[in-house]
Design a protein around this nucleic acid. Sequence first.
RNA 1: GGCCCCAUCGUCUAAUGGUCAGGACAUCACUCUUUCAAGGUGAAGAUACGGGUUCAAUUCCCGUUGGGGCUACCA
Length: 496
Amino acid sequence: MPQEAESDTQDGFELSLREHRKSGVRVRIAPSPTGAIHVGLARSALYNYLFACSHGGTFVLRIEDTDVQRSTEESAQAIIKGLGWLGITFDEGPYYQSQRLDIYRKHADQLLQSGHAYRCYCTPERLAEEREKAEAQRSAWRYDRRCLNLSEEERKKFEAEGIKPAIRFLVPEGKTTFTDLIHGSITREHKDIDDFIIVRSNGIPTYNFAVVADDHLMEISHVLRAVEHISNTFKQILLYNAFGWEIPQFAHLPLILGEDKKKLSKRHGAMSLEEFRAQGFLADAMVNFLVLLGWSPGEDREIISRQELVKLFSIERINTSNAIFDMRKLEWMNGEYLRAMDTSQLLTAFHDWLGYQGISLPREYASAEFLSRALPLIAERSRTLDEVYDALLPYLSDELTYDEEGLNKHFRKDPEGVKRWLLLYRERLEKLHEFNKETAEGVLRELVEELGIKPGLVIHPVRVAVTGRTVGPPLFDCLELLGKERVLDRLSKLPQ
RNA sequence: GGCCCCAUCGUCUAAUGGUCAGGACAUCACUCUUUCAAGGUGAAGAUACGGGUUCAAUUCCCGUUGGGGCUACCA
């Protein structure tokens, strides 16, 4: 499919009508390392990754750290680590824009030479002032091109004052249209575009300039990125045309919004990938959930493996409208993945999570033997690893906290009666030669039979007494997990 | 304010110029059950509004409304 981007410039000169490169798919993500990695970036990365995988293409990571004030290396590492956790890996990179400054400088000079760009000595302060003034009058502000035709003398004067110029792109008259793979044809008139700055006065290029140079030099064939970049795309196409470069295909992804329908931002602290990992979400579930936010396979399917995703994914099926992040559906999906895991997978996932959280289990319960008995029972009724850990707590420590509601319901109505039953049960357990869930259940059934009461009247208080909780795995599994000694101990220290 | 994007159940979404507008999460009810989950069964729940085009519009066009984004020497 040919890329139909074209620009009519003032002389009616068609600068580009280019063919899609035939050399194969090369995609990239280009995050700015300025903070926690949020789910929007993760999903963009995922879509690029899946697209590359399904086309046998190349996936490039480029760190856009041209904002020296806010960029940090820690953040760059966190991005790589976070995406790695999701199983998203790169074929090339990371490239750092901060290490390519001479490349941008060279290209900026080229535009200066060809008259596509000019030096601007206006101070940011002055520009901000004028912008405010225009805003006060509720009129659109555009750069007035004051520095477009500076005489040599004026220029010398500014230089003598020590003012370092920025470089602006000279936006031609006309309009630009491009065909977005998701949105179709989009047009913008050049009069709505400012003479934007391509190189700051400190010599560092701005996003719109660096991204074009890099995408071209790195031979990026398809740019899949968030819709917020649509307006930038016009500026970028103008630059491609000024250089006479081939224009890549663009696909602008819908946004992921928070529950408040606002764009995900630092406000949504819990939306960072690290946060989800800490809460005990599984990488596979995250991937599955994220891919469905803005894309669907076209059949009534929700749980889709990575392998299938690679096969099924296509840009054509990406949606146009923004999606709201539904935490409850993620929780459900995570539960599905949790329940689908076998014991060894559970063990691995749980250990990874403990490691990530910096939690170490008491030595006697850290054994694979204990955990491989406990985890399946617990994971079956959990949605996150965080919940798994919480449900495991009564088995890890002898310091129980008793659930208030459970005490009210099962102890306080008839304290003496309940205590008597539990102590009777304890006696029978104590006599057991072989203590396991079958024998523990056997003696309980005998007991209630003799007492002529319903099993639940003993079962529920026992659960509270030995685990402190009203919910959990089937009681006799719990007893077996705890072991005879601790069960007897806890039954002799009944809650009040 | 200007420019751009978007609009199907509360949420994620499917579908077609003619369907009983389908599925999933969440909700509710019933069921299963020693609790909690899970499972099973069922219920409720959507084409934003107004105009066109058409025999027929949720689908195509226009407008309105609503939401979102951009409008930096951020990306």
